[in-house]
């Protein structure tokens, strides 16, 4: 979060110079989300394995993340937002990462379980 001070100096302009998304972009993103939904259902029924490790869960999560990113960037206009907004979004994801990873350092390395 310490990078804010640079952010605002370099961008004296205000966010309200607003980018109005085109209807075509929205339709395109909607289509991509529908395809993603179909893809994730289809992938769930395939047994995807590499070297004995099932890749179904990572694939489902990657598709979900791509979909979520599309929503964040286009529906929520983060693509055209200030750096501060982008940093805010990233910090949210980063902190969720802290919670999940550091918790899993315990659950995945327990010798006694």
């Amino acid at each position: 979060m310490t990078a804010h001070q640079q952010t605002e100096h370099q961008q004296p302009h205000h966010e309200s110079v607003h980018h109005i998304g085109s209807l075509f972009t929205y339709a395109l993103i909607f289509g991509a989300l529908l395809i993603g939904t179909g893809l994730t259902v289809w992938a769930a029924f395939q047994n995807i394995e590499v070297g004995g490790i099932s890749l179904n869960a990572p694939i489902a999560l990657i598709i979900a993340t791509v979909k979520a990113t599309l929503v964040v960037l286009y529906f929520m206009h983060v693509k055209d937002s200030s750096r501060l907004t982008k940093i805010t979004v990233i910090s949210g994801v980063f902190w969720l990462g802290i919670l999940l990873t550091l918790t899993m350092t315990d659950f995945l390395t327990r010798a006694w379980h």
């Binding site: 994730t40 769930a44 047994n47 099932s54 489902a60 979900a64 979909k67 979520a68 929503v71 964040v72």
Partner: peptide, 23 residues
């Protein structure tokens, strides 16, 4: 949109676990 994103994750995580019957 945020509520939508939560569902985008909930759907595969809750509905699509091991549907292919692997291990």
């Amino acid at each position: 949109h945020f509520v939508d994103i939560v569902w985008i994750y909930l759907f595969p995580l809750l509905y699509l676990i091991n549907r292919h019957g692997g291990h």
